[in-house]
Design a protein around this nucleic acid. Structure first.
Length: 154
DNA sequence: GCCAACGTTGGC
DNA sequence: GCCAACGTTGGC
């Protein structure tokens, strides 16, 4: 089993939105980055735990926990010319983009802010992609050690 | 709103 | 296959 962190903009789809979905589950569509896609498509398994991160907002940080509810399948929004993340290069017969379904597990007791996480950038979270400069990946792996450490400061 | 970082595209 | 131009991400 692998651990993950997934980013979302709370203005578009935050953890409260996920918790409010039917079955508290939603398709994680719109990922249009090859590295992130490869991780979703090739490595994510049902039950993998996910840190839910709020990006591009007032206080960026980890706000909750989710889990993989369904393994990868084609992101059909890429086929829809009306969709925000339409990609004419994605052919339904040979899809370019994939998504997983994500299920809400719980909110953290408090938000663990990016600012706070950065304090450990030379220690326990030295190799954590989130606190590395210029990181833009919207899906990233988390080691078991990083996972445990982050939850230990909740 | 600014801008640094970085991924993608496309001309050559 | 190189690399400049361009678009996007996301913190601040």
């Amino acid at each position: 089993m692998l651990y993950w962190l997934m980013k979302s903009e709370p203005d578009a789809f935050g953890i409260d939105d996920l918790a409010a979905c039917p079955n508290q589950t939603e398709a994680w569509d719109g990922v249009r980055n090859f590295q992130a896609r490869n991780m979703m498509r090739d490595q994510m398994r049902v039950g993998d735990p996910i840190l839910f991160y709020h990006s591009n907002c007032k206080v960026p940080g980890i706000v909750g926990i989710a889990e993989v509810a369904r393994e990868s399948y084609p992101d059909h929004t890429a086929f829809d010319p009306q969709a925000k993340y339409y990609d004419p290069k994605s052919d339904p017969n040979k899809p370019r983009w994939f998504m997983v379904d994500v299920r809400y597990v719980r909110h953290l007791k408090r938000v663990i802010t990016l600012n706070e996480l950065k304090q450990y950038a030379t220690g326990a979270l030295e190799d954590f992609a989130l606190v590395r400069r210029g990181n833009r990946l919207s899906v990233m792996p988390v080691t078991p050690e990083q996972w445990q450490f982050i939850l230990s400061i909740e």
